[in-house]
Structures are given as structure tokens and as C-alpha cells.
Design a protein around this nucleic acid. Sequence first.
DNA 1: CAATGATGTAATGTATACATTGTTAAAACG
DNA 2: CGTTTTAACAATGTATACATTACATCATTG
Lengths: 244, 244
Amino acid sequence: MAEAKGSNHTRRATYDLRQKIIHGEYPGGTRLLEVALAEQMGISRTPVREAMSRLAEEGLLERARGGGFVVRSFSYSDVVDAIEIRGVLEGTAARLAAERGAPEGKLRQIKAVVAQIDTCFEPSGQLRAFDAYSELNSEFHDLMAALCGSAIVQRELERVKSLPFASPAAFVLGGHRDDPSDRSLLMAQAQHRAIVSAIENREGARAEALAREHARFARGSLEATFIKGATEAEGLPGMALIVR
Amino acid sequence: MAEAKGSNHTRRATYDLRQKIIHGEYPGGTRLLEVALAEQMGISRTPVREAMSRLAEEGLLERARGGGFVVRSFSYSDVVDAIEIRGVLEGTAARLAAERGAPEGKLRQIKAVVAQIDTCFEPSGQLRAFDAYSELNSEFHDLMAALCGSAIVQRELERVKSLPFASPAAFVLGGHRDDPSDRSLLMAQAQHRAIVSAIENREGARAEALAREHARFARGSLEATFIKGATEAEGLPGMALIVR
DNA sequence: CAATGATGTAATGTATACATTGTTAAAACG
DNA sequence: CGTTTTAACAATGTATACATTACATCATTG
């Protein structure tokens, strides 16, 4: 479990803890003990505390009654609801962008990303095509969140997406890990294009409906992965957080 | 500035700091210094730090580059967007309650609150009618958030409402502080009733649209208060956070 | 036997000394 | 004169000792 990133103890502890939680080392409901973690990491309680506080902000931990922190646990329906909310908020971002008008520069940017995603489907046999799609997909969703220029909308969306299983990347990594030219990915890309088109044409209601449906699509894909069982779902981000 | 609530230093510090920020003692953008605050409150840096960390979770502070915390500042358009998001999320809560069905008990509860709000308009000359409306209004919104039974939806809504100017109470306290039988309050109450009816009849789209419009209505009322100028807006929760 | 209270332990809460860093302003250099 | 370096200071970061509280366990009592 990589120790990486940052110069100070708090950053390292935050990163380490986050990784361990996401990868299931501390299952949902586990109470995290400052002393134990501090010893284990070879640092004092202070930065451990600070790290837990930040992870609580992220939504990975919650403050326990009587002090301390507990790893947040999510049910299957929580996952569904979190993705629903992402869809609702992305829908709002898209609608506001359509209604208020998106700046030319940002529109050009998001169109460029859509065009780049297209190249991932080209049969040039790129081994990295899948990773590229994943990367560009995240970029698309970030740009969409920023398109209407509202810092508030952007911030809330970032918050929701910080739950690993609710992030747009979960869709890509969840469903279809072998075939980059999977029909689902093609379908999703068609939705990307439609969303941008709706925003450009100032069709607020259409933009909102499409963005929502786009998230629903991701949800359906995740559901399929769930049904396949734990083996298939192993590589899915944050799967370890989910308790039945 | 009351020192109230809780037995330990962290709670007191959190409460005090929150009050001071909301009441404008530390305007948006102010960097909060641990040492100064600790001295001022007669406690050590540790609980001050902890308090700031919690207020960052609430969204009142943000972590500054290079460490420390800064009071978050909001523009007028941030207020508009925050209320928009509240409306969108309340709309989602209402829609899901309609689609998935709300439990009988909770429905009875929210209907009881609606009935109680009606009594605030009775001409029995209650001096406390206005406060009662405010209290019951908050209760209505809390119940609406809980109606669909999704902890995720409820949590996100609580988060958004924790910004004082985005809370449902801001509408009541903002626009019309003198006349409990104000037409706006009557109108809002009519919306409450319609929302419940839509949920009960499983009309998801209607419930969502109504809940959204209800928040928009609050926003309009706030806008009017803004236009009246700072004098009128003085008693409005969190007004001090807003920088032009 | 149930309920309640005492008691010990293990956790978090708090204070404080010290370390590190980041920022500012002055001084040295080109 | 502008730029860059450096040194001092003031802030946060960290460790640690000590205080307090919460919880579990067991004893006591009705």
C-alpha cells in the first residue's frame, strides 16, 4: 500500500488511510483508533486526527458518537442513490449551462474532449485505449460541471463524485474491463455528444434529461456488475465500502 | 456572543466561531489564526483547530493554501445557486418519495405539520405565530427530505441547508418579518400542501416540479430583500457571509 | 432476576513545547 | 534599478504528557 505523496505527515496519512479504506482494509463500520493508526504509521496522533478529519469532509468517514471516527458504510441502495444524485446535479449543471449560456472557450474544450474520446474507438489497436477513455470520460464530466460557471454547482458535484463508486470513472471501470469498443461505451459517448449539443442549442430541459439519463446508464452498468457477483466487481472503485 | 452549549472546549469553540462568522465578526475571506483565536477564547490551539476543521465540513470555512483556514465568502450569485441546488435536491427527495412510495407514518407526520402551519394564519392574534411558522416550516422541509427513506438524499440536503442563507428558514426570516399572514407565507403553505398531495398520489414529476418551484419562490423573496438594501436584510441569516 | 450503580480501563480531549514551513522585507548582486 | 538571495519572523505542523470522558464489566440492591 503505497506511502506516497506530499511532504508532511498529514498528507501521507490522509493518502494512506484513504487507500486502505477504499481497498477494504478497514471495512465499513470499523472504528478507527488514533493510537493504533499512529503507531502503525510511525507518527503521532495529531496528524492521524487531522487526516481523519479530512476524510470525514470527503465523506469516507463519519464522526462517531462520543468522539472518534468510523468508516462510513454504504448499502447497495446508497450506491444507487448516490449515482442518482450525481445525475440530478449533473443534470442541473447541464441545464444551467444551457439556460445561462456556456462560454465559447469552455464549449470548445468539452467538444475537443468528445472528439478525443472518438479516437478511442478507432481500430488502431491501441492497448491504452481503455485507460484513455476512462481519463477522457472523467475530463468530460469535470468540464460539464464547470460549464455553467457556478462554483457552488461545481463544488457540490465534486463532493458527490468523491465517493469512488459514484464517480463517473466507476462506470468505465465497473462494467466492461476488457473491450474498449464495448457497446455501452459507444452508447455513453453518444450521450456525451447529445448533452453538448443540447447545451449549445440552449435546450435546458433536454440537456438536463440527457445528463440524468447518462448517470442512470452508468447505474445500470454497475447493477449488472453487482449481479455478476463479488469476483467480477473486485476491481470496481470503492466496492469494499459496500456492505450488503 | 453567547458561550453556550456543550461541555468541552471543542464544542464551545465550534459554536462560538460559527456564531461569530454568521454574524459577520469575521467577514468572508478572513484568515483565521489559531493562536489569536485560542488566546481570545482562553483555550489552547488544539480545540480551535478541531473546531475549524468541523466548520470546514459544514462549508463555512475552507482550507487555505499553505495551511490554515479562511472564512468562505459567497457572492450574490452563489446564494442564488445554493438555493437552486436546494430546490433541485428537495425536488429529487419529493420525486423519489412519490416514485418509491412514502411510508404511511411519515406521510401522516408531514400532513400533521401542514395542518399545524394552517393554525398560524388563524386570526387568534398569536404573537408567536410567526416563530411558530418558521419552526414548522423547517420541520416540513426536514420531513420532506426524509420521506423517501434515502439516507444519502437526506444527508446531502442537510448539508446544503447548513448554509444559513440557503436554509428554508431564510425565506421566512428574510422577506416578511412583520406580518405572519403575509401572502407569501400563504402561498408557500399552498405549495406545501400541493407537494404532499403529489407525493401521496405518486405523481413524481409533479412533486419534483412543485418542490423546485417552492425553493424558487423562496429565492424570489430573498431577492426582494436584497434589493431593499442592507438595512432590511440585516436580520437575515448568514447575510454577513455575502460579499458583493 | 432485573435494574442500577460503582469501578477500571481505554479511548479521545487538551495543553504545550518544539519543528518546520512559508512569507516578507531587507540586503546583496547583476 | 531590477532581480535574486537570504535571514528573520510568524504561522501551521508535530510530538507528547496529562486530563477527561465514555464504555464495559461486575457488583450490589430492590
